[in-house]
């Protein structure tokens, strides 16, 4: 049994990230944000493991559009490549769960099996934000707290934009690391 991550991102400009970044810089007065990218994250649970599991995920992507549309989306299996950054920057990955929505994953699993012949045990989807900020001699812990308060969790007009804590939850993917 293994869980394979599939990261997806738009091939053309992601306007969600662009507008959020502009709002953070220009309207929320947080110039330390270096870059912002948005990904989709599928977690595919399979009975197989290792290369066999990776091959099955590749097979799903090659033979169906249920996880992503390769005409307009890039994808990465298992590992999300690091954004080229300098040692002056720190990257955080934030996984977002909408706690009110429960998509019908069973229906997708059924369609994958029918079309591709791969048995998926479980499937889940999340939004993933990649936030790169200036280190400014701050510790990872201090930076993480600052990013969460000023960029991520909406509390009022001046603080947070990426998630609404009233119906979304978030977690940092470890580790935060310099470029």
């Amino acid at each position: 049994m293994s869980v394979v991550s599939v990261y997806t991102m738009l091939k053309n400009t992601d306007l969600h990230s662009l507008s959020a970044q502009e709002a953070i810089h220009e309207m929320m007065a947080y110039p330390s944000l270096v870059s912002l990218r948005r990904f989709g994250l599928w977690e595919v649970t399979l009975a197989s493991s290792g290369d066999a599991a990776l091959n099955e995920v590749q097979q799903i992507i090659d033979q169906s559009y249920y996880l992503l549309n390769p005409n307009k989306e890039h994808y990465f299996i298992s590992n999300l490549p690091a954004t080229p950054t300098s040692s002056a920057h720190v990257r955080f990955l934030i996984k977002v769960t909408n706690r009110l929505l429960q998509p019908d994953y069973d229906a997708i699993i059924e369609k994958i099996e029918k079309r591709v012949g791969v048995k998926v045990n479980a499937l889940s989807y999340y939004l993933l934000w990649e936030v790169v900020v200036d280190r400014r001699n701050l510790s990872d812990t201090a930076l993480r707290a600052e990013v969460e308060k000023k960029v991520i969790a909406s509390a009022d007009r001046a603080h947070g934009i990426l998630i609404n804590p009233l119906y979304e939850t978030m977690s940092f993917l470890e580790p935060a690391y310099a470029g």
Binding site: N98, D156, L166, Y167
Partner: peptide, 17 residues
């Protein structure tokens, strides 16, 4: 206070979009 205390989430029917 202008603190965010209500949200407009995605439409759902029994939590299905």
């Amino acid at each position: 206070k202008a603190a965010i205390s209500i949200a407009l989430a995605h439409n759902a029917r029994q939590n299905r979009p």
